[in-house]
Simulated scan of single mutants.
Amino acid sequence: MTPSLSMAGKVAIVTGAGGGIGRDIAIQLAQAGARVVVNDIGVSLSGEGSDTGPAAAVVAEIRANGGDASANTDSISSRDGARRLVEQAVDTFGRVDCVVNNAGILRDRFFHKMSDEEWDAVLKVHLYGSFYTSSAAAPFFKEQGSGAYVHMTSTSGLVGNRAQANYAAAKMGIVGLSRTIAIDMQRAGVRSNCIAPFAWGRMVASIPVTTEAQKVAAERKQKLMTPGKVAPLAVYLGSDLAGDINGQVFAVRGNEIMLMSQPRPVKSVHQAEGWTPESIGEIAMPAMRGALTPLEETADVFNWPPI
């Protein structure tokens, strides 16, 4: 395939780009011609510590391959950190055209055992971070009459996973955030879309493997669901190639790209005299029962091997 220069002349910000999906997105954005601000504070999977090395290493890799990049270690979980990140892009490269909200941490625990800190920490990075960074870039996007947001959601929110109430709530919140940004900013020529990535990284690797079948499945996922498979869609959505794509939710699973549904009415019942709790149980629920959503988890819905 001929390399694309779809991001030539553009400036992109990628949060959480020191490793995993964010690293591959940053590298492929640079390969497509973008100048990239690589944001990563170098924390552990659960959000502890800090290390300037990961962001600097990705910048060095981009530069070694002829690209242009700048490292940033601000925390996007605060409004000031997100503002400094966007200002660095503008100060360094003169503009900003694309924001990829990728940074994330995990604090898995059954919801009734989850502490305030475990809840707050995950929402701060994923949901607040996406809001703060998007908000900081918005004035620049509006002034130039163009811009693209690419947000990372998850099937943990779209479908469901156990012991991830904080993560799932944040990721579903990001879908609502993206959709509203798309509506609010469309007149300014700004787009906002989501990707639910399936990729082997620190988050997926942290899920316990207890059976031989799970081990075999994990090995297949590690081989086929690489972060590099997600990056092309992020580059596409950030570029002018996706000029008419706005407010959508996609998923990437190996070599598959899926357009995900968004909540819309699936069945309606009406009764002229209104409803009582009893008539709802007698009439409405039986009429709608066949359309109820099964209580499934991500693995139940995406039950075929990655390809």
Rank of each mutant, 00 (worst) to 15 (best):
V43D: 00
A103F: 02
F131N: 11
Y236H: 10
I181Q: 03
G228V: 08
P197T: 11
T2S: 04
E282Q: 07
G66I: 04
S77A: 15
T211Q: 14
P227N: 05
E273F: 03
A213D: 15
N303S: 10
N65P: 03
A12R: 03
M225T: 13
D40M: 00
P208A: 14
R84I: 14
E143V: 08
S130G: 14
T180Q: 03
I174T: 06
L5D: 05
T298F: 02
M7C: 02
G201D: 12
A12G: 08
I207L: 13
V301I: 04
G145M: 13
W275K: 09
T15H: 06
V125P: 10
P227I: 04
E273I: 03
V38R: 00
V209T: 15
F111Y: 12
R107M: 09
N193L: 09
R179D: 08
R107F: 10
Q144I: 08
D51C: 07
A69G: 07
H112D: 14
D74V: 09
Y167S: 03
S46L: 01
E143H: 11
A82H: 13
L259F: 08
E118R: 08
C98R: 03
S261M: 06
G9E: 09
E212T: 14
V99S: 05
A17L: 01
K124L: 11
V159D: 11
I76N: 09
A299C: 02
K215S: 15
S192K: 06
T180C: 03
S78K: 08
A56I: 01
G9L: 09
H270G: 04
I13Q: 01
V249W: 11
I13P: 01
L5E: 05
H270C: 05
S279L: 15
M203Y: 10
A138E: 13
R23C: 02
K267M: 10
G243I: 06
A169W: 02
I283F: 03
L45F: 00
E61A: 09
I257N: 09
V96Q: 11
V36W: 00
L106Q: 06
Q271E: 10
V252Y: 15
M114Y: 08
M258W: 13
S134D: 05
T2W: 00
G157S: 07
V159K: 13
R253H: 15
N303Y: 03
G145A: 11
